[in-house]
Design a protein around this nucleic acid. Sequence first.
DNA 1: GCCCCTGGTTACCTCGAAGGAACCACCCCA
DNA 2: TGGGGTGGTTCCTTCGAGGTAACCAGGGGC
Lengths: 130, 130
Amino acid sequence: MPVSPIAPLSQMMAEYSDPSQCPVRNVLDQLGDKWSVLIISALAHRPYRFGELKREISDISQRMLTQTLRDLQSDGLIERTVFPTTPPSVEYKLSPMGHSFLVPLSAMVDWAFEHFPAIREARQEFAKAA
Amino acid sequence: MPVSPIAPLSQMMAEYSDPSQCPVRNVLDQLGDKWSVLIISALAHRPYRFGELKREISDISQRMLTQTLRDLQSDGLIERTVFPTTPPSVEYKLSPMGHSFLVPLSAMVDWAFEHFPAIREARQEFAKAA
DNA sequence: GCCCCTGGTTACCTCGAAGGAACCACCCCA
DNA sequence: TGGGGTGGTTCCTTCGAGGTAACCAGGGGC
């Protein structure tokens, strides 16, 4: 079962010598940050309003919530809608592209849950050996 | 096509209030770093020696290569073998678990390649609108 | 008049990730 | 004798992600 459809590194490095131009590094930079995945996970279920998200992800600061939402919106993964109520409310939801991202994301999430016990064990072994 | 097997956030936040205990945050912390994915991608094809990796990933510093390899080894994703040649050489290769990680990883890589053009476009739109 | 709700923006500060360069031991080879 | 190739480690310094707190507008309720 050969599972490595990943392009040879040398080819990648040559083609995308500027990391900011490499799709993979680019995407992982964004999603490797502290909050993006949590926000996307929340929005996977239903649209959320700003304050709702802030309450749901209790340990995020308002600053980082705004900023991460902006970044995700800039990348076209989420859509922002302002409702002119009083006070105005803002709804965030996944775009179609954001929704398509749930496929690889849930693959990672599944893998993490499945192998986390083994990882913990490996860490203990490693610490003990050192 | 409901694609959201991701557990409700509230449940996750409750169960793993300490982020370091959350499998997903934990794994993504490791792999969201600057070098892990590149190293794993290289090792996906064949075992590499330290110096080979350093040459392959030309812009990594020796310090970060050592450190990232140690972290991956600690998590049980790669195996380190010392050959008592002169000079001694060290081989790194994916463990079975490391190999299993290629499945979700290549899902992400595929997604990144497929949607990167759309992301670039979205960024330009967003920048223009601002 | 005052405070609170909405969803932000801004200035300031901290702390850790990462880079650079120097150093290490060992051995080979010229 | 000393330079180079193994695979590291250690120190120093920078840089930026992220936290905290204050402030904003507009309207409602007391």
